[in-house]
Amino acid sequence: MDLSIIDVGLVTKLLLLLLIGMGPKIALVPFLEMTQKFDGPTKAKIGRQMVLTATITALILLATGALLMRLLHISGGAVAIAGGIVLTLLALKMAAGPTEKHHDDDLGAPVDPEKIAVFPLAIPYLLNPVGITVLIIASDEIVSVASAALVVGLVLIVAAFDYLVFTNIDVLAKRMKPASLIISEVVFGILLTAVAVTLVISGLSQLGIISASAAH
Rank of each mutant, 00 (worst) to 15 (best):
L181W: 12
A96E: 08
A214C: 06
T42F: 04
V79R: 04
K45E: 12
T88I: 03
F119D: 04
F161S: 02
I183E: 07
V29G: 09
V130L: 00
V79C: 07
V51N: 02
K115S: 13
G83N: 03
G189A: 02
D170R: 14
L28Q: 09
D106N: 08
I56H: 00
L71D: 00
S211D: 08
T42E: 10
V155P: 04
A160T: 10
K43T: 06
L207G: 10
H102T: 12
D162H: 00
G203T: 01
A214S: 14
A160I: 06
F31C: 07
V152P: 07
T55G: 00
A146R: 13
D105K: 14
P98Y: 10
I137V: 15
A215Y: 10
G65T: 07
L156T: 08
V29F: 15
L28D: 07
K45I: 03
D39Y: 01
D39F: 00
G77F: 05
P110E: 07
V118D: 04
P124Y: 01
V152E: 07
A78G: 15
H216I: 07
I190Q: 02
L14D: 01
I85K: 06
L18W: 01
A78H: 07
V134L: 11
P178W: 13
E33W: 09
L32G: 10
S202N: 13
G65I: 05
D106E: 14
K177T: 13
V130N: 00
I169Y: 10
H102M: 12
P30D: 12
A122S: 12
G208K: 04
F119L: 06
K13C: 01
I132H: 00
A96G: 15
G9T: 13
I60T: 02
A196N: 06
A173G: 07
I74D: 07
T57F: 04
L14W: 03
I85Y: 05
L28Y: 15
G108T: 07
G189D: 05
T198F: 06
I136E: 04
L19F: 02
I183Y: 13
V197E: 04
I85Q: 08
V165I: 15
T193Y: 13
A146K: 13
T12R: 09
A54L: 02
G40R: 13
I142T: 11
P120E: 04
P113Q: 11
L127Y: 00
G77S: 03
V186K: 15
V171S: 14
M34R: 10
I132S: 03
T57W: 01
T64L: 09
D140T: 05
I136W: 06
L172M: 15
L10M: 12
K177E: 14
L71S: 08
G21I: 03
A149I: 11
T193S: 13
L127D: 03
H73Y: 07
R175H: 14
I81G: 06
I5G: 04
A160F: 08
P41L: 10
V29N: 13
A138E: 11
V151I: 14
L164F: 12
S139M: 08
T53A: 13
L207H: 01
L172C: 11
V111D: 04
F188T: 11
K115M: 10
V158T: 02
A44T: 14
E114V: 14
A196S: 15
L17G: 07
A91K: 08
I210L: 03
L32H: 11
V11A: 12
L192N: 06
I6N: 03
G108V: 08
L17D: 05
Q206V: 03
I60N: 01
A91W: 12
D7F: 06
L62Q: 06
D112M: 13
